[in-house]
Design a protein around this nucleic acid. Structure first.
Length: 222
DNA sequence: AGCTGATCATAT
DNA sequence: ATATGATCAGCT
């Protein structure tokens, strides 16, 4: 297990040293065996890269590299570099939705992100998928405004007890989607009358259309 | 073909 | 139990 990087530059250098390598080679080096399938190992590649880079936050509600304030996200991409999936950000607070965007978990996690592209096409054997060149990103003014507007809209709906009628169709960049073991999971929330109720746990996700624009901008600058 | 709602594994 | 890491599968 590598030590945690001491600077952003060191983190980026380490991440870029992974570029071009296959998932199975990184796994072998860390003495990890491959899951039977991506269905059975959904988080495997992300956790593999966290280990390879020396992330520290575990399952805490903190950026992966706490001392650097950097969140690492592996992102499955097609041959043309476009993301194939949305990106999970964090759980949505359904019971105590007060607060300002600047202090939200969404804003803290997205303040600085290390994107690590990974070949994600379903036709490629998971073991054979290659890592791409990582990029560091912070939201620009426009991206930040979009994220804030989405967050405020979604949080307002939660606060007003309208989470049940809020779907993944809401939000330009950020969406609210189920985040649970299954559809029977329940979490405290706010009901239509403003009274406490039980509802399906949800998380904030970035739409693939948004991360596509982010990656385009990052790779243009490189 | 893209997207939404559902789901799988692991850490603490 | 609830956070993290995500991808799957079926519908539009």
């Amino acid at each position: 297990m590598p030590e945690t990087p001491r600077s952003e530059q060191e983190l980026l250098a380490r991440a870029r040293a992974l570029a071009g390598r296959r998932v199975i080679d990184v796994a072998t080096q860390l003495q990890l065996s491959m899951p039977r399938s991506m269905r059975a190992g959904k988080g495997f590649v992300g956790q593999l890269i966290e280990r390879a880079l020396g992330a520290t936050a575990g399952s805490l509600s903190e950026p992966d590299f706490q001392h650097l304030g950097v969140e690492m996200k592996s992102i499955p991409v097609a041959a043309d570099g476009r993301p194939l999936e949305s990106t999970y950000v964090c759980v949505a607070p359904l019971a105590e939705p007060a607060g300002r965007f600047e202090h939200s978990a969404v804003a803290r996690k997205l303040a600085r992100v290390l994107w690590v592209p990974v070949q994600g096409e379903r036709g490629i054997d998971p073991a054979e998928r290659r890592l791409g060149s990582a990029v560091l990103w912070s939201p620009d003014e426009h991206e930040m405004a979009t994220l804030r507007a989405d967050w405020e809209e979604l949080m307002e709906r939660i606060a007003l007890g309208r989470v049940e009628e809020t779907t993944a169709r809401h939000g330009v960049a950020l969406q609210l989607r189920p985040k649970a073991a299954d559809s029977h999971a329940r979490r405290s929330g706010i009901g239509r009358d403003g009274a406490p109720t039980e509802t399906l746990p949800r998380g904030f996700y970035l739409r693939a259309s948004f991360t596509a624009a982010v990656l385009r901008r990052c790779f243009l600058a490189v």
